[in-house]
Amino acid sequence: MRPGTEGAHDRTPTTESLFTARSAGGRRERFVSALLAASAAATVLVTVGLVLTLIFEAGHFLVEVGLLSFLLDSEWTPGFRPARYGILPLLVGTLKVAAIASVVALPIGLLTAIYLSEYADRRARALLKPLLETLAGIPTVVYGYFALIVVTPALRSVLPGIEVFNALSAGIVVGIMIIPMVSSLSEDAFRAVPRSLRDGAFALGATRFEVAWRIVLPAAASGVVAAFILALSRAIGETMIVAIAAGDLAGLSLDPRIATQTMTAYIVQMSLGDTPRGTIEYQSLFAVCMTLFLLTLALNATSQRIVRRFRTVYR
């Protein structure tokens, strides 16, 4: 018998009135459905409210500063007179840290995922998976101090030219933080590749490595790329580590050894500082928030698109 055809035949005819049975359950059903709809609506409202606030405040700021100088000015000096509000230094700082994080997290995360899905036996998995989950569960403030107190001194003992607050240390630790994300999302993509493809390759005399590298990885490529992009987006949004360890120098430099301010770190600085509300300086916060929001939104959308567009449909 085909699965799923059973129920239809086994159902005994009921003698109760269908009408009363339905209306009794109907009231509760309506209540539950209203409750669920209200929760969903609350989520939508909060999101819309947030975005509207952002647009409104950032709009004020942009009208004042001008969109072009916000996008093209090479300096971000809100505290100076005259203040300059070019987002590029913060953007470069953000991307610098994210790039360093990617260099750490993508290869390690990918290799970990390949190991977990193609090589590890049950015992190794039982050891490694909880470890990765722990890594993912550590509060970011702990990572931040780990960067400042452990990684930075270690780096400084190897690379003398490095500043106390620097992009390299923060980037490495952000990378460590997102390894579990890269590995677990990539592993999901690998596990979605059907067993039968691996068997087909093994039966042709492929080694485990050839199966992983030539069959599983290409078949899961879209999922892996999507995982990378999501992790990148997470790295860009990471705040605590950079606020603690990267410093607060907004400069248009790619040097990983110097203090570097990211968009998130600027937002923290501005929110915690004593800048009066309503000033242009204060409103710059929202423009940065808006930029960050659009950037991560674009990355997440790209990741979803890749998954949908390039997903291999197995038969």
């Binding site: 059907p194 039968s196 493809l197 068997d199 087909g200 290409p218 078949a219 291999t312 197995y314």
Partner: peptide, 8 residues
């Protein structure tokens, strides 16, 4: 194999 399993 029982079910055709060509590579993608």
């Amino acid at each position: 194999f029982q079910r055709p399993n060509p590579f993608p």
